[in-house]
């Protein structure tokens, strides 16, 4: 389980109760459960192997906490993600506003990340058209604007769920092929998320070699004073 190799990191983003977990659950186990169920211990991280053409791709699907209190931390989650599925509830307009927030974040922070907008709970609309609170065409325009793909899914009926994830995998394969072609399979791809944060903090601007030398001298001096200071105290 834990040793399994994963090719793509896919993050699920979205407000609480829009159905991120159900979507993953439907896709991975092909089920929608209302009552209590026992088979899995958690759906927070799932690795799913799928085939695209003659290739197999392993998606690592990361569920994230949607509560606003963790908003500041969401950055840590989507670092290095190749794809992000931003979910919103078709019957809840506030959830779409939140989705926009994540899209903006992703656009600013994670350029290499492909965005998929996903309106959930479409089965509720089948029952009653008037429950729709987020207009399809508005979102389509928005999606075109941000170069995202749009899906409206139902985890209850399974509508468009497989298509969504299949598309994610296909896009990854084609992008990866493109990168190999252009020799762009940069090692930065492999760098762990927090390492980036750390480095950004450590070196805010590229420092010239001369500066570095000075810094090293300063550090050495500092170390010396620490040593001597320690001895004097004693």
């Amino acid at each position: 389980m834990s040793g399994q190799r994963v090719d793509v990191k896919v993050v699920m983003l979205g407000k609480e109760y829009v159905g991120k977990t159900s979507l993953v659950e439907r896709y991975v186990h092909d089920r929608f459960l209302v009552g209590p169920y026992q088979n899995t211990i958690g759906a927070a991280f799932v690795a799913k192997v799928m085939s695209v053409g003659d290739r197999t791709v392993t998606l690592g699907i990361w569920d994230t906490a949607g509560s606003e209190r963790y908003e500041a931390m969401s950055r840590i989650y989507y670092r290095g993600a190749k794809a992000a599925i931003v979910c919103y509830d078709l019957t809840d307009s506030s959830s779409f506003e939140r989705a926009k927030f994540w899209v903006k974040e992703l656009r600013n922070q994670e350029e290499g990340c492909q965005i998929y907008l996903c309106g959930t709970k479409s089965d509720l609309l089948e029952e009653d058209r008037r429950r729709r609170r987020v207009d399809f065409h508005d979102v389509q325009d928005y999606a075109d604007n941000i170069k995202a793909q749009l899906f409206e899914t139902s985890s209850k009926t399974g509508q468009s769920v497989d298509e969504l994830f299949q598309k994610v995998a296909e896009d990854y394969v084609s992008v990866a092929a493109f990168q190999v072609m252009t020799g762009e399979a940069a090692r930065t791809n492999f760098l762990p998320a927090t390492l980036f944060l750390m480095r950004q903090r450590a070196s805010p601007a590229p420092v010239s070699r001369c500066c570095q030398a000075w810094k090293r001298i300063a550090d050495a001096l500092h170390a010396l004073t620490v040593v001597w200071g320690g001895e004097c105290k004693e």
């Binding site: 834990s2 399994q4 990191k9 690795a47 690592g60 760098l191 762990p192 998320a193």
Partner: peptide, 15 residues
């Protein structure tokens, strides 16, 4: 660290 299950839990710990 980047993608696998271990990475996921580690990221959560960072969070």
């Amino acid at each position: 660290l980047m993608t696998g299950e271990d990475g996921y839990y580690f990221t959560n710990l960072c969070c």
